[in-house]
Design a binder for these strands. Sequence first.
DNA 1: TATTGTTATACTCTATAACTATA
DNA 2: TATAGTTATAGAGTATAACAATA
Lengths: 154, 154
Amino acid sequence: MLQTFFPYQLAVTAEAFSRHLVEVYQHDYGFSREEWRFLFLLAGEESLSSLDLARRSSMDRVQVSRAASRLEQKGLIRRTVSLQDRRLRIYSCTPKGRALFEEAYPRVAARAEAILGRLSPEERAALELGLNALLNAARADAVAATDADRDAAE
Amino acid sequence: MLQTFFPYQLAVTAEAFSRHLVEVYQHDYGFSREEWRFLFLLAGEESLSSLDLARRSSMDRVQVSRAASRLEQKGLIRRTVSLQDRRLRIYSCTPKGRALFEEAYPRVAARAEAILGRLSPEERAALELGLNALLNAARADAVAATDADRDAAE
DNA sequence: TATTGTTATACTCTATAACTATA
DNA sequence: TATAGTTATAGAGTATAACAATA
């Protein structure tokens, strides 16, 4: 049964949960997922370099560049060239950008909480524990697979 | 911190896990996700109608139709018009399709197991319990939201 | 030469609407 | 008229390659 195949359950659950949140930040605020992640990271800091953002958001440099262009056009962030290394960009929120994020964030978080609040404390603890373990396992396996490829190529 | 925001953790974990499996069925066998799900369901049955497939796979009728076209072109499934209701289609695997799935499935399942095998039995049980609870909660919330919309519209 | 940001290109996914056939 | 399948279209997401600027 497809429905009982774990990879399918994981994909369907993640999609269903994500859809609820996208509804809020996309429909109500017009942010793409990349823009949302970008603002999320930037709102908590004075400023971040393009490298910081790529590393913390798991976006590649193309995604960062495009999200930055859109957010800059909307007047939500500022983009300047780094003085230390002029290949890099330094991003910071504008007051308008920070204000919009601070309006949107509680609504997104509340939507997530509305769902997670339906879980018992035990279920919720199990979810966080299990998910964390799975992410580590998936990353460890990626490393193992890469090692195997490298070994095979030798 | 974005990394500690639960919705982000869920999305990143699901993507990382899925990527491992897609590598196998897409790279090694050339199946899209829809084709893979389609074959998965069909391989376990003598035949299924288009409605059965859509319901069990959470694909809509457009996705079912397109996946069916590609699988038929590849000679992996048969598509006939239902005699009971000539608006419906009845799908079944060809021997070639079933053989290919039965070759691919153990490899995909093994890849999933390679990752899940890194979890302790406790972590694994927690993951399944938590994920199941979350899916139910997300679905319940979708129903609640729809009810609220309907109430608001009255 | 290696790295970064940018732009272009292509492919997949998703969502929606229009059209045909059938009920 | 309502439902099912198909086809077309547009938008978002993802991946890759080419290019210019900088180190």
